[in-house]
Amino acid sequence: MTLLAVERIKLFTTRSPWWCSAVTLAVTIGFAALIVGTAGDEIPITVRVTQFGYSFGLAVVMVLAALAVTTEYRFGTIRTTFQAVPNRTAALLAKTGVVALLALALGEIAAFGSWALANVIRPQDDLALNTVAEWTNVAGVGPVYALTAVIAVAVGILVRHSAGAISILLIYTLAAESLVQLIPNVGDDIHKWLPFNVADKFLTGGMAGAGGEGPPVSTSALSAGWALAYFAGFALVMLVIALTTANKRDA
């Protein structure tokens, strides 16, 4: 508990987490409001469409999580941390846990905020959360943000440079996974198993929004439950690799 308290204090005494948190909520809820508010009356708004801004917030969460660890390497405070806590694994796990909890909270606030605002803008549409899939589409954003934060922290530990870690994360999520589909013959098969495509399957169940509105549909062959387990497993593998590397090299 002491390590968690220390990491919480270190995280919230810098400006970047506050700014990133504010931007995450603003872009996620803002883009959802933009899509819902500009849609014509002839286009029914679904629960899935209210989460249109999910991927924009996800990108900011990755930046927040990467900065949480790379900033310490940049200013050398990570050496002080490891001197105070010789067990590097425990120290880095505490940091990861604090960042993941913040990402979880941001995801839930952003998702339910987007859904609530859509209800205000389009009261004539049925946006009630009546099914498990609809609840997952909204409440599932938090767990996906949390696991994404774990992945981003792991990349930050491995790369140790803010610009490098953020570039890798954003290029991969915003471009690389989609470009894989262009590989002849095997591209689509590989894409089905890429982590963020699988995470989208957990959130959406592979269902498109009404009229084709909303984020692209996941091509993963897994069920929603197995998709979440797969994404969590990927995050765990990344974290284990990062912790192993951190314990073997100089701070």
Rank of each mutant, 00 (worst) to 15 (best):
T80H: 14
G40T: 02
M62F: 12
R88H: 14
K95T: 14
I29H: 07
I35G: 05
T50G: 06
V36M: 06
Q124S: 15
V61N: 00
P17R: 02
L25G: 02
V120L: 12
A105W: 01
T50C: 05
A111I: 01
L64C: 01
L34P: 00
A84Q: 13
K95E: 14
G40L: 11
A94R: 00
L92T: 02
L127N: 02
I29G: 09
T89L: 06
A39S: 15
L117M: 14
A105M: 14
F31I: 10
L127Q: 06
R88M: 11
K95Q: 15
L102Q: 11
G37D: 14
A66K: 07
V23Q: 09
D126H: 10
F31S: 13
T77I: 09
D125P: 10
A110I: 04
V99P: 02
L106Y: 07
Y54K: 03
T77L: 11
A22P: 05
A22H: 07
D125Q: 13
E108R: 03
I35H: 06
I35M: 10
A94N: 08
L64H: 00
V47R: 02
N87V: 09
V99W: 02
G37P: 13
I78F: 06
L117F: 14
V120P: 01
G37N: 13
G97E: 09
V85R: 04
V36N: 07
L25A: 04
W18E: 04
T81E: 05
T24Q: 04
I29T: 11
A91G: 09
A100H: 01
P86V: 05
S114V: 11
E72Y: 15
G113M: 11
Y54V: 13
